[in-house]
Design a protein around this nucleic acid. Sequence first.
DNA 1: GTAGAAAAGTGGGATAAAGTGGCATATAAA
DNA 2: TTTATATGCCACTTTATCCCACTTTTCTAC
Lengths: 142, 142
Amino acid sequence: MVIKTGFVGKYQHNLDDKNRVSLPAKIKKYIEEVASSPEYGERIMLTKGPDNCIEGFMVSDWQSMAEKVQSNMSFKRNPEDEELEEIAMNADQVSIDKSGRIMINADLKKHAGLNKSAVFVGAIDRFRIWNPDKLAEKYNGR
Amino acid sequence: MVIKTGFVGKYQHNLDDKNRVSLPAKIKKYIEEVASSPEYGERIMLTKGPDNCIEGFMVSDWQSMAEKVQSNMSFKRNPEDEELEEIAMNADQVSIDKSGRIMINADLKKHAGLNKSAVFVGAIDRFRIWNPDKLAEKYNGR
DNA sequence: GTAGAAAAGTGGGATAAAGTGGCATATAAA
DNA sequence: TTTATATGCCACTTTATCCCACTTTTCTAC
């Protein structure tokens, strides 16, 4: 029986010199548990998020969000489509390696201003990756 | 027949040098009794509470809150969810070990100003964990 | 109330898992 | 082929979990 608590918690990890970072064990475990099939447990969708963070989604969730967009598509463009376009453009589907790590591509790394250290934070339907200083700044040490 | 009294009572226990603390037997028993399936009886959701306390919830309660968020997720997060994000970020899902203990992570321990001793207080739909001195101060010996 | 049994609570060592860095190998681009 | 980039693999350190022993408290039967 799977308990769908969503992503929770705060975890600090280091990027190595190849821009790999360990997925926090609890996040990894949650993805594997919730995944409806094994392939969904092996990948993550990353994209640029608000305030210079990176957002991570389960690919199954990404898929259902994408399907929702596709079902109301029209040839006429709406203003909010532009935002969506940017999210799609910057998205990167990454695989989780045997050691439980993912790679942060150069674009996302720059967007988040990451150096050696990154903080993963749970946000129920997604998780976010922050530069530790920027996260502390936003939440003012809370 | 299960009697749903909610969490009640006050119990003082010690943290060991691995930041483990026994869940008071009555709280543990209540969770196990109320749990609709065994998995719900094995975990607890801890969050930062008001006045430097830690709040503990049954994961089933947390889940029903989280499902609401997950059921209408979209690429862009609703602004009204921001408060929830902060709660999720500071939450920790902990498991109850074979001896009936839970681990208090460094973040929560610091938030509550815990040292060796912690007081569990029942509050019907949740329980709280306090530094004994801070609890006494708040209720001024009542 | 008392004695014995059971349960709750505590501490510590052993084991397992998570996280990290480095090097080797594979794949793709120049 | 050479270079660059990505992935796999292994070793080591740290942290969490398990397991057992022991003490204290609570419960039960008399």
